[in-house]
Each structure stands twice: as structure tokens, then as C-alpha cells.
């Protein structure tokens, strides 16, 4: 059942893009849209949007880079470890949970390292990879999406995004403990 689902989704994600392209453009021709001209017109915005993001991304990534390089994560892990032990979350996976919203490459590195040390099928390995799949890099998404429309006052986006991350991590711990718990 799980394998069938996986095979199906894999197949869909392989054909999705070619299918979408032909569907969208074909439907456009059918509706007498001058597809080439309209495509180029829309594509023009690609450059300006990408360039518009740069200052937001520089601000965000620099701060995250400084935080990562300083060793603050180790300190935070030591401080928070007693609390996470209470909910049955191994403190080895705490850096993963803390890094996930900040940096995609950073959390990927931590996940790989945890699997190398503890094995991918250990509880820690499974939990770390579940955590990786349970959330997106919140601060990156925030910087890129808000940056593209020059939003500076993000209102409740950061607290709401962090609450989402918190519940994603708690959900990962909860389900992994139930299914693979020790």
C-alpha cells in the first residue's frame, strides 16, 4: 500500500511539469491566446522579481550565517535539553529542530550527520528525517515571499510561522514515538 502510494506520487511528479506545460500552452492556443507573445510578456517579470528579493535574502541569510557560525546552536541545545527530555525527544535531535526553520542546508547537514552517527533506521535517524520532512525553512520562505512584494512589516507572520514549526516538530516526535518508540 505504502509502496504503491510512493510509486504513484513519484510517477506524478515526473510527468507533472511536461504535462502542465503542454496543458497550459495547449489550452491557451485553443482559446486563441497568442501564446508566445504572452509567455514572453509574463517571463519578463522573472528578472525583476528575482532581483527584488536580493536585499531581503542578504539580510536574512547573513543573520542566520552569523548565528550558525558562532556556535550559539550548541549553547541553545544545552539550555533546552532538559525540557525536551521530558517529552521523550532525544537531545541529539534538538539541533535539527532548532535549525530547521533557519537553514535548509544546515538542517540537511545535521540530518545526514545524525544518520551517520546513529544509523538511518535508529529512532534518532527516523525522527531526524521525519523532522526534516515535517517543515519548510520558514525564514527563507519569509524572506523570499515577502521580499518579492517589498513587505517590510510582516505582522503576525513570524509568530504564526514559528508556531507552525513548533507543532511540526512536536507532531514528528509524537508520531515517531508511537510508531517507532523505544
Amino acid at each position: 500500500m505504502g509502496d504503491l502510494f510512493r510509486a504513484l506520487i513519484n510517477a506524478v511528479s515526473i510527468v507533472a511539469i511536461p504535462l502542465l506545460l503542454i496543458l497550459f500552452l495547449g489550452y491557451g492556443i485553443l482559446k486563441k491566446v497568442r501564446v508566445y507573445e504572452v509567455f514572453v510578456e509574463g517571463a519578463k517579470e522573472g528578472f525583476t522579481t528575482a532581483v527584488r528579493i536580493i536585499p531581503y535574502l542578504v539580510a536574512m541569510l547573513c543573520a542566520i550565517g552569523i548565528f550558525r557560525a558562532s556556535g550559539a546552536l550548541e549553547l541553545l541545545t544545552a539550555v533546552l535539553a532538559p525540557a525536551t527530555n521530558l517529552i521523550g525527544m532525544p537531545s541529539e535531535t534538538l539541533p535539527m529542530a532548532l535549525m530547521r526553520p533557519l537553514s535548509g542546508s544546515g538542517s540537511l547537514g545535521i540530518m545526514t550527520e545524525l544518520m551517520k552517527v546513529h544509523g538511518p533506521d535508529s529512532f534518532i535517524g527516523i525522527l531526524a528525517s521525519t523532522m526534516y520532512g515535517s517543515s519548510e525553512t520558514t525564514f527563507y520562505v519569509l524572506a523570499v515571499y515577502f521580499g518579492s512584494v517589498q513587505i517590510k512589516n510582516t505582522r503576525h507572520a513570524v509568530p504564526a510561522g514559528l508556531i507552525a514549526d513548533l507543532f511540526g516538530m512536536l507532531g514528528a516526535v509524537f508520531i515517531c514515538r508511537i510508531l517507532f518508540g523505544v
Binding site: T130, G133, S134, A172, C176
Partner: peptide
């Protein structure tokens, strides 16, 4: 487990 976690989030 990932779908569950991401669903929670």
C-alpha cells in the same frame, strides 16, 4: 510520519 508532522505544522 512526515505527512503527519507537516500536517500538524
Amino acid at each position: 510520519t512526515s505527512i503527519f508532522g507537516a500536517g500538524c505544522a
